[in-house]
């Protein structure tokens, strides 16, 4: 009966391994070489690149910024996505129209929308400051003041990916059983108590999945930074992937960039695993 089980798993697994194994091993190998724009090829310099990255303040700064940005945007996306899902879950005029509309940003190409956003944020001829000025307010230095540039990038990420949370959470809401709500009403619970007693616990599983997936995707944040700020002003919006990109493809220090990448991967896998465990424990406790 179970003899055929490998027929299911193996094709996919083998294809993925076949595609991924060489690039992965190769990256690890390159990280021990001094491959650079003036020195193409694989020599052996042992751990020199890793020694160098330990002292690379820009790399660790970028990693810190990435953590803040990823966790920050995902939490905001989750909160907003949940709120929006609740809004269009119940009775609403033109409910289906809004459901479609709220999904749309996720469907658009990040790199292309970032280009549009860059013109939106343009401080002298862009529409955002145009609106503010029409209201008699001061223009805002969206992309040229460090904290605001950071916030602007986050805003674009939130615009792009809140729909993802919205979709998963709404699908979850739609499938919730009716009975607990009837019971809550009989108990005389208000909407807020009902939410925390019934809805939220029932949504725990899907919430964990949505948050984790978004964290994984958010940690790769790249296009918005690449297009809108190039990591500036100063290094205010430089995240790990962008920094690796600068070192690897702009500077063409392939050896060093590979060491950065390998370190990055290890850090990411470890921290995401920990986050997953913590989330599960928190939500599981909530449920009991």
């Amino acid at each position: 009966m179970y003899r055929q089980k490998h027929l299911f798993l193996l094709p996919g697994l083998l294809v993925l391994v076949a595609i991924i194994i060489f690039p992965l091993l190769f990256t690890i190998r390159v990280s021990f070489s001094s491959w650079d724009v003036f020195q193409p090829g694989l020599d052996w310099i042992a751990g020199a690149n890793y020694g160098r990255l330990l002292e690379d303040a820009r790399y660790w700064g970028a990693l810190g910024r990435l953590m803040i940005m990823a966790v920050g945007t995902v939490l905001i996306q989750y909160t907003l996505g949940f709120a929006l899902a609740l809004l269009v879950w119940g009775d609403l005029k033109a409910r289906r129209f809004f459901r479609v509309l709220f999904l749309v940003p996720m469907m658009t190409t990040p790199v292309i929308m970032s280009v549009i956003w860059r013109t939106v944020f343009h401080e002298s001829i862009g529409p955002l400051n145009g609106l503010l000025q029409a209201l008699g307010l001061q223009g805002v230095p969206w992309l040229s003041e460090p904290a605001l540039a950071f916030a602007s990038v986050m805003m674009v990420e939130i615009w792009q990916w809140t729909p993802f949370m919205f979709l998963l959470l709404l699908a979850g809401l739609v499938s919730l059983p009716r009975e607990p709500y009837l019971a809550a009403r009989i108990d005389g619970a208000g909407p807020i108590r009902t939410f925390f007693a019934v809805t939220f616990p029932a949504m725990a599983g899907i919430s964990i999945a949505a948050i984790l997936i978004r964290l994984i995707e958010a940690s790769k944040i790249m296009e918005s930074v690449y297009v809108m700020t190039s990591g500036g002003p100063g290094t205010a919006t430089e995240t790990s992937t962008y920094y690796i990109y600068i070192r690897g493809l702009r500077d063409f220090q392939l050896g060093y960039a590979s060491a950065l990448s390998v370190t990055y991967l290890v850090i990411m896998i470890i921290s995401l695993t920990i986050i997953a465990k913590v989330l599960v424990r928190l939500f599981v406790k909530d449920r009991t």
Binding site: L16, P23, F26, T27, I216, K220, G248, L249, S261, M268
Partner: peptide
Amino acid sequence: QRIMPPIVLAIP
């Protein structure tokens, strides 16, 4: 596999 940023794998 989704954790890997494309930039890491571009050259390989």
